[in-house]
């Protein structure tokens, strides 16, 4: 079974608002305000793939291929996947960095998946941790004509496809999907990303990563935009956060609790 995991890099989401800056001209976060990391839900997707391979040991051989789209620096996300023992990693070279239009990414991934044929399962994060589009997985499934299930946290392989547990508004659902399938992955307590071993990280740092180019995958670039109505990013703004906190003080916890309830009554909340 071949599993493709699509990964991308984002600006570290742990950067506090006080340190966050924008690059108005690039219409993106300013460079250098923090590290780039693998997008949070892509890490969950890698974890789901790794656990599937472990569970299938002895039943079926599983190959995990990590894909990313971006400039040469995007290979860092692939090295993370390799350090977690993904079997292969391929960089789809695109001059532009993020945010890339969802349809462009989906069309490039589709071409790469077809080149990797046969592929049984594609996993990607439910949305990127920076632009929160949440469309690439669905676009990819539509482009390929495959089953698609969103907000999946657990997957099992069955004789005729997959059983996927996915989150819903009220709880969760079990969905049976045909093979091949696309699943967009969300976090839960069963897919918390593991940390790589130091030895594997060093090996991944030295790995040679193949690069596939847009011309070899899809021919002219205009073909990427087919079936797309492109949204234009006019600007980014930082919303003003003007809040003055009222600290509840007191000599004892009793006093603080009483003062809090009093403050809430004054604000007519209680």
């Amino acid at each position: 079974m071949r599993i493709v995991v699509c990964v991308t890099q984002i600006l570290d989401p742990e950067i506090p608002p006080s340190e966050f800056r924008l690059d108005a001209e690039r219409r993106a976060a300013a460079e250098g305000i923090g590290q780039l990391v693998v997008s949070i839900f892509d890490e969950n997707a890698l974890e789901v793939a790794l656990q599937l391979r472990e569970r299938m040991a002895g039943r079926e051989a599983v190959e995990i291929v990590a894909l990313t789209v971006g400039p040469p620096s995007a290979a860092d996300a692939l090295r993370r996947a390799l350090s977690l023992r993904a079997d292969r990693a391929i960089l789809i070279s695109s001059a532009e960095g993020p945010p890339l239009d969802g349809i462009v990414v989906a069309n490039l991934l589709k071409a790469a998946v077809e080149r990797l044929h046969p592929v049984d399962l594609i996993l990607c994060g439910r949305e990127t941790g920076d632009w929160h589009g949440g469309v690439v997985g669905s676009f990819l499934a539509e482009a390929l004509g495959w089953a698609c299930v969103n907000f999946v946290s657990r997957i099992e392989v069955t004789d005729d496809g997959f059983l996927m547990r996915r989150q819903s508004d009220e709880g969760w659902e079990i969905v049976r999907a045909t093979r091949p399938a696309v699943a967009t992955i969300t976090n839960d307590d069963t897919n918390v990303p593991r940390l790589p071993k130091v030895r594997d990280t060093m090996m991944a740092a030295r790995a040679s990563i193949p690069v596939w180019t847009i011309p070899e995958l899809v021919g002219e670039e205009a073909r990427l935009w087919e079936t797309s109505g492109r949204l234009q990013v006019r600007e980014l703004i930082i919303p003003s956060l003007s809040k003055a906190i009222e600290w509840i003080e007191g000599e004892t916890v009793q006093e603080k609790a009483a003062r809090l309830v009093q403050a809430l009554r004054e604000r007519r909340i209680l």
């Binding site: 966050f20 632009w131 929160h132 949440g134 949204l231 990013v233 980014l236 703004i237 919303p239």
Partner: peptide, 30 residues
């Protein structure tokens, strides 16, 4: 997705959505 603001300007739909975990708002035009 995750749209928090909607208006029209010169006949085009202008969309506001939170990005970077809500640290910024993106103004998008269709």
């Amino acid at each position: 997705t995750d749209v928090i603001g909607l208006r029209a300007e010169d006949g085009a739909v202008v969309i506001t959505k939170p990005v970077y975990g809500g640290k910024a708002h993106a103004i998008l035009v269709a």
